[in-house]
Design a binder for these strands. Structure first.
Lengths: 104, 104
DNA sequence: TATTAATATTAGATATTTTTAATATAATGA
DNA sequence: TCATTATATTAAAAATATCTAATATTAATA
């Protein structure tokens, strides 16, 4: 129940540009260049943010020719959310875990 | 749907000492001194972290003599969590909102 | 192979956060 | 009132995070 990896999720989501990335990637998978243009960030900054998201296990990428297509790992966010819940309400957390299992 | 206040919740929880505080306060309300000792932080650092938690609306405090007793505002965390969900899954978020209403 | 396009990596500059140290405030009790 | 205890506030130092600029890598294409 240590969940060391999950702590870092909050650090990742603490940055506004990264929450915007997560939001965009929640809708569609996107290339680095598409994210760069959507967010108005430099190429370098975009790559660096993606690296953090990737290291935290929140995204994966696959190659397509010269491009890298990033997509969100929703299960990682789900896991982080469950830990988040457990910080303040163990009981509700259990109910939701059940619900999620019933669904997925 | 802007939820500007909620963005800051991630910034608050990005710090390990503050997540520990949230966890401790999820179990019991505590004085500054108790938190200080539990966390092994200085008095000043403890107060400053509490100020951030308080400004984000995650805790409240009441006076008792010379002491200040802090307690967690679970509804604020609940609200933040719902926003968190919406970043990646609108549908599941709606199900959970319903569940929470049914419960609380 | 040389060139271009897309992305990654690195180093250093800048900005932000966190801690420490000192001081201030507020309540209590002698 | 004076001293003490609990906490808050402030400024500066220390630690981290983020951005920019330069360079590297990788794949496609001429």
């Amino acid at each position: 129940m240590g969940m060391p990896q999950v702590e870092s999720v909050f650090r990742i989501l603490a940055d506004k540009n990264r929450t915007r990335m997560v939001k965009l990637l929640g809708e569609n998978e996107l290339t680095v260049g598409e994210l760069e243009r959507s967010l108005g960030l430099s190429q370098s900054a975009t790559s660096q943010h993606l690296k953090l998201l990737n290291d935290a296990g929140l995204v994966v990428c696959r190659k397509h020719g010269n491009f890298r297509i990033y997509s969100l790992r929703k299960e990682a966010l789900q896991k982080a959310m469950r830990y988040f819940d457990s910080l303040w309400d163990e009981g509700l957390n259990k109910m939701k875990t059940k619900l999620e299992h019933g669904k997925g």
